[in-house]
Design a binder for these strands. Structure first.
Lengths: 114, 114
DNA sequence: CGAATCAATAACCATATGGTTATATTATTA
DNA sequence: TAATAATATAACCATATGGTTATTGATTCG
């Protein structure tokens, strides 16, 4: 695993807020800027800037100035690692539950043999 | 999506702490109790109880009293939904970043070699 | 029965989080 | 040049989070 525990704290922390998940979803449609990202939310501009800072801290997005506007885009490198970890985690649960399922089926089998 | 946004806040919030991720990892090895779960951590018992409450609130684990001890186990129903969402999320990223596909294929390859 | 064990709860503390309004900074535009 | 626009920053507030110690309530053990 390339991504370390502290980074993972930040990534999951960033994803634990609906506004930030919404921003990520919007950015999936393509690069944007702060004003456009803020538009859907009934929230002040500074609040959105704070959310962007959290996403940036988690390495999920990056910002760059272009004139007076700040362009925002997802940051593939870190997001890829997060996605890989999340997928790994999902697979981990899946395997765990598959195993539980098998145990339960086994138990049902044994019970039927009584 | 069965799991709603507020539940997702709680799930990601729960996963945003290394201690809680560690507890989930330990529980993957099987059902446990509070004392056993607390053992690996340099932290008081009430602190662990708090973490367990957060995991329970996110629907990732469930607790039940057995005598004087509290048995703790992962709660398949909600955790599966979370895993499903996470997988969906991972797929979402995958669609946007070509390289993710390569990483996942690499992982699949490595797993098949087990 | 009395002591030890398991775990929850209460009260407290420091810091983080998520929001606000006001202000400042830097472009752009009229 | 003056006004407007796009953001960031500062200062503030309420609540949440993550930890502590002390205590309590059951259960189990000797």
């Amino acid at each position: 695993m390339v991504i370390d525990s502290k980074q993972l704290d930040l990534v999951f922390g960033a994803l634990s807020d609906a506004t930030r998940r919404g921003i990520l979803a919007d950015l999936a449609k393509g690069e944007s800027n702060v004003t456009a990202l803020a538009a859907p939310y009934d929230m002040s501009q500074p609040a959105i800037s704070k959310h962007l800072r959290v996403l940036e801290g988690a390495g999920l997005i990056e910002r760059s100035k272009t004139g007076r506007e700040t362009r925002v885009r997802v940051k593939p490198d870190n997001a890829q690692e997060a996605a890989a970890w999340i997928t790994h985690y999902a697979r981990f649960w899946q395997q765990h539950f598959d195993a539980v399922d098998q145990i339960l089926q086994q138990q049902r089998k044994l019970q039927n043999e009584d």
